[in-house]
């Protein structure tokens, strides 16, 4: 991958990587760090990563970085507190907005389920690609996706969204 290709990856996918990290974690600074780590890794391994696989590589690195941050920083309870705090993106300003409701509901999912939901619904990756990015099996992807959607529906029903 040339420097030109790398810069093209920044233009094309830095927003997607940032969004992915953000919905997996929710902390703006950590997500920015995750994006920077992902692109630093891509630059370092640009000779080995093909342009076509660059986005998957970026998402994979960002996900691992996010998981590392989460393990190091917080428990599930603290994560919940961050999500509901006023300075986080998961705090919807207006619950009437369905997108923000979905964002809030997704914030309560485990990180792996959030990641799979994004990769499947937003980025449109196949189960195989998601498995490759998250380093899990295809069947695990399907099981986590089943649980994620089930949890989302339960939250929406419980909160009468």
């Amino acid at each position: 991958m040339t420097t030109h290709d790398y810069n093209k990856c920044v233009d094309l996918w830095s927003d997607d990587v940032y969004r992915f990290a953000y919905h997996c974690h929710g902390d703006v600074r950590d997500c920015e760090d995750a994006v920077q780590e992902a692109y630093a890794a891509l630059w370092k391994n640009r000779d080995d990563v093909r342009f076509e696989k660059a986005k998957s590589y970026l998402l994979s690195v960002a996900y691992r970085q996010i998981m590392k941050m989460i393990r190091n920083k917080m428990t599930a309870t603290r994560n919940q507190q961050q999500i509901t705090s006023s300075d986080t993106a998961y705090s919807p300003a207006d619950n009437s907005d369905l997108k923000e409701v979905l964002t809030l509901a997704m914030g309560n999912l485990p990180e792996i389920q959030r990641a799979i939901l994004q990769l499947r619904d937003i980025d449109g990756y196949s189960y195989k690609d998601i498995a490759e990015i998250l380093k899990i099996s295809d069947k695990q992807v399907q099981v986590y996706l089943y649980r994620a959607r089930l949890n989302m529906r339960k939250q929406l029903n419980d909160n009468k969204f």
Binding site: K99, L150, M152, R153
Partner: peptide
């Protein structure tokens, strides 16, 4: 309760 049509594709772009 499982809703296969439930999607987060409408999440705001960032």
């Amino acid at each position: 309760l499982y809703d296969p049509k439930l999607t987060v594709a409408g999440l705001p772009k960032m």
